[in-house]
Design a protein around this nucleic acid. Structure first.
Lengths: 136, 136
DNA sequence: ATGCTTAATAATAATCATTCACATCAAGGG
DNA sequence: CCCTTGATGTGAATGATTATTATTAAGCAT
């Protein structure tokens, strides 16, 4: 696979980061992925992980999730799918569902002068792990 | 209006913050609201604004937006409505549209063990102001 | 009205995620 | 093989939010 595009160079760090993200079925934060990648390349820096994740998202090879929560999360799967986020721990999982017909619905809406570029549908709930731990 | 609930006390600061938020049609961040509130009460502290906004959201008198972007945003209007967020400046506006039939659709979805508490539908775009400024 | 209990406040320090600055390194074309 | 320039690692800087703490003031009971 070719990880470069335009004037981007093809570094070992970028390849490892991309493969690590694709190997995870989760939607890690930058520092979660940093911990994974460090096992393979112990001297890599967190700044490099951030820089490459943002860059890879910009060229469309991965997705930067537009999700609530204070930490950025990334997804190696760029196919169209919806997420559910745990409001306790912030974990994000994939939801496999027929996409709802939002694009059709959008034709009827007054967007008040905005150029609409997309939409994000995100479910919210308590993940199985947090439900087990916390008692409410 | 009574802004207290349970053991909460009814302070001048809380009242001013709540009224200021309700008076705005925007969805301000804590520090945007802080700037507004300071005009009326110059010695108020940013920490007090944060503390009260979070508290008022917890008791359901205002809404804390579960929106992307690094800053928290709050909404004095707790009725059900959808938002659009500018991906350039982070500004959030209301969209008046018939709610899509997501609740019905949800019955058909496998939520993988999550207790679902809700969903967030958010449109994304470029606001009129940013479209005017930037040239792309 | 006065005092008392305790939540709320103002000010400031601490934390956490992310970005920046910069000296060095190395990919890949010539 | 060298040179240009993007990429890296280190560490410092930033910005938003949260925590700490001494002081103030609601509001109930006197």
């Amino acid at each position: 696979m070719n990880t470069s595009s335009g004037k981007l160079r093809n570094t070992a760090q970028r390849t490892i980061i991309l493969n690590a993200l694709r190997g995870l079925k989760t939607h890690p934060t930058a520092d979660e992925l940093y911990e994974v990648v460090k096992k393979e390349m112990p001297k890599i820096s967190l700044g490099t992980v951030y820089r490459n994740l943002v860059m890879l998202a910009e060229i469309g090879m991965i997705r930067k999730l537009e999700t609530a929560g204070k930490q950025m999360r990334f997804d190696g799967d760029i196919s169209a799918h919806v997420h559910i986020r745990c409001s306790r721990c912030g974990r994000v999982d994939d939801i496999w569902a027929d996409p709802i017909s939002i694009p059709e619905h959008m034709k009827t809406i007054d967007f008040r002068g905005y150029q609409v570029t997309g939409y994000a549908l995100e479910y919210e709930g308590i993940c199985p792990d947090c439900a087990k731990k916390g008692m409410n």
